[in-house]
């Protein structure tokens, strides 16, 4: 619980035609090798936002090593469901399976629980788009918009003020970025501090997860006028 309150913020917003996730990265610096996330892959740096299945993405806050283990478990669970039922796993079922595992570690002595909170953004034909949150004890709940990690109280109240029930995906992207820029410690947003992902439907009505690459995040920030500004240029202009 302690680790989670210091972890990078993860924020999720449910829209009528999609779900948006964003996360603040804490492990940054000039010397960090980011070449892996720039070339190839499905995007993201592998620190905060993960693809769990073709219809579910997740954002994690807490102990990174524990999170990696849970991500691996959920990927196997999802593929196991596809193997047995020839269909993508329903989102709530995946959340339940992960929470069963988490709960197990709170029940017996000698072992420590997983120090991870998770946001899940997913789609299934039963309940369409969904956003869930689970905590280390194994509790989970569904949300329209929520936040975990550092400063989650501030973000929650901002979301509560600005969220509308019939919000579309584009508005949701804007809302997430604005809220993120207000809650993060640093003054400016940039791809080196931010991970971003959306889940929408493609032309064939199949769920499509998109985890943004660094260059795409910067382009998105410019579009929403939240990008890092060159202060010298501003000074000269003034």
């Amino acid at each position: 619980m302690e680790a989670i309150s210091h972890a990078g913020t993860v924020l999720g917003v449910l829209a009528k035609d999609g779900v948006v996730l964003a996360a603040e990265k804490k492990v940054t610096g000039k010397l960090l090798d980011m070449s892996g996330s720039k070339e190839g892959g499905y995007g993201g740096s592998g620190e905060k936002i993960f693809l769990l299945n073709s219809n579910v993405i997740s954002g994690v806050a807490g102990l990174t090593a524990d999170a990696n283990s849970l991500v691996n478990y959920s990927r196997q669970t999802a593929q196991g469901h596809l193997f047995n039922y020839n269909d993508d796993i329903p989102v709530e079922l995946l959340v339940q399976r992960l929470c069963d595992l988490k709960q197990g570690y709170t029940q017996y002595g000698g072992l420590r629980p997983f120090g991870v909170s998770i946001l899940y953004a997913g789609y299934d034909p039963h309940y369409q788009f969904q956003l869930y949150h689970s905590d280390p004890s194994g509790n989970y709940s569904g949300w329209k918009a929520t936040c975990i990690g550092a400063n989650n109280g501030t973000a929650q109240s901002l979301l509560k003020q600005e969220y509308k029930d019939d919000i579309g995906i584009d508005e949701a992207v804007g809302l997430v970025l604005r809220t993120m820029s207000k809650t993060m410690d640093s003054t400016t947003l940039g791809s080196e501090k931010l991970e971003f992902a959306t889940l929408t439907l493609d032309a064939d009505k199949r769920p499509k997860a998109k985890i943004y690459k660094p260059a795409e995040i910067d382009a998105l920030l410019v579009k929403h006028d939240l990008a890092k500004k060159d202060e010298d240029a501003e000074m000269r202009a003034a």
């Binding site: 039922y85 329903p90 034909p125």
Partner: peptide, 17 residues
């Protein structure tokens, strides 16, 4: 367990397995 039944295609896949 899940409040909704398996859809026919999924049920058939499970039975086949």
């Amino acid at each position: 367990r899940h409040t909704y039944p398996l859809r026919p295609a999924s049920a058939a896949s499970w039975i086949r397995r």
